[in-house]
Amino acid sequence: MIFGVPLLQMLVLVFAATFDMKKIDMVVVDKDLSETSREMIAKFDAIPFYNLEFAVPDETIGEEMLFSDEADAILVIPPNMERNLIRDDKAQVQLLVNAIDGNSAQLIYSYSSRIIGNFNKNMIAEWKGIPEFSPPGEVKISESYWYNTELDYHWFMAPGILAVLVTVIGMFMSGMNLVREKEIGTIEQLNVTPVKKYQFIIGKLVPFWLIALFDLAFGLLVAWLVFDLPVVGNLLVLFAFASVFLLGALGLGLFISTVSDTQQQVMFISFFFMMIFIMMGGIFTPVESMPHWAQTIDRANPMYYFMKIMRNVVLKGSGFIDLLEEFLSLLLLGVIFLSLAIWRYRKTT
């Protein structure tokens, strides 16, 4: 259970949590029905992830499809496009994009406008006889992507999701274990012994700490096998950071369980923190683009540091010194959360 469930989650989530556009359903409303319009449509049709829907005589039906989520975008080619193009040297087409999901909408827009742009260039080249790819005086941007050269979304998500999984396992299990002793009453038997508070907390910490670290190793192995995810950086550095991070995460879990009486309470409070940690930790959205106040709060979010560390060490190969600030922050949070847990654990009520 402890190893199987997270494995399954990683496989499912990494594939599912992707922003890549793999399929665009576009309705084409061609009112021109000319050679030029057909050529333009053929450009879209040539791209595998455009799924075109034709033969809609007017845009109202297209709009309906947009409304009912059957289509992602509508391309409207007005009547007389070809004629306008020949007569006035310019013509217009209309692109309507379903922007419920802003991210996808932007992608669809930029893909589509690039296709139309290329179509334009070709046409200018054809008509005016200028060589196709070298219009005069154009500045060309050639891009090269570093650290994740293929822009493989799985590589971006896998370390992030692993970070979340390890945290969930560690935090929930340590917290649930302690409060379960309260529920079944074995904690009383321990509380009448001379066991020291810090000894008790260490006893509750170490097993889950080891399990979580093992899970991390296991997850990295699976990510390597399934997603071909390389660990560019030093594994020792990664595990050194993970060890310190987990002290904080488990410490918080234990602290929550010392203030709770039932497993339900632990679940509820842990879930609250988990949601904030994950959503603000930068797994989907970069922390740098969050408002200033949110970034300030993130200084106390262990997940924020760990997410950053995971990705930087795994994808970029950052070393210990590069991430020293993150390391010290995690250490501080670990000390704070563990101290809180020890302080709040009561042998006498």
Partner: peptide
């Protein structure tokens, strides 16, 4: 001196409390 007392006593509660 609660902790000193704990070194010198044993306790068996009505809730059966060995680890099952």
């Amino acid at each position: 001196e609660t902790e000193k007392i704990k070194k010198n006593i044993g306790y068996m509660s009505q809730k059966f409390s060995l680890y099952e």
